[in-house]
Computed example of a mutant assay.
Amino acid sequence: MSRKVLITGGTGLIGTRLAEMLIDSGFEVALLSREPGKSSHYRSFRWDPAAGTIDEAAVPYADYIINLAGSSVSDGKWTDERKREIMTSRLGGLALLHRELSTHGHHVRAFISASAIGVYGDAGDTLVTEETPPGLPTHDFLADVAHQWELAAEPIAALGIRTVIPRIGIVLSSEGGALPQMARPVKLGAGAALGSGKQYMSWVHLDDLCRLFMAMLEDESWRGTYNAVAPNPVTNQEFTEVLAQVLHRPLLLPKVPAFGLKLALGEMSDIVLASQRVSAQKVLAHGFRFEYPTLQEALESFYVTE
Rank of each mutant, 00 (worst) to 15 (best):
D122I: 07
V128H: 12
G176P: 06
P134F: 13
P134A: 12
V119H: 08
A158N: 13
I117H: 03
H107I: 03
R211H: 15
G189K: 02
G191N: 01
M216A: 03
V108N: 06
L97K: 12
I168W: 03
I156R: 03
L96N: 03
M216H: 00
L212P: 00
G177Y: 00
D208G: 14
P133E: 09
L101I: 13
H98V: 10
D144W: 11
A143N: 11
G135I: 09
S115H: 01
L212W: 01
L136K: 10
H98S: 13
A123Y: 07
G105S: 07
P180N: 06
V204F: 11
A193G: 15
V128E: 14
L206R: 03
A192G: 14
C210R: 05
A116Q: 01
G135L: 11
A183Q: 02
L188H: 03
I161M: 08
Y200I: 03
E175V: 04
G191D: 02
V204S: 02
G124D: 08
L212F: 15
T126I: 12
M182G: 01
I156G: 04
L94E: 04
E150N: 04
H104G: 11
T163W: 04
Y120M: 07
H205C: 08
H98I: 14
V128N: 10
K198Y: 12
P155D: 06
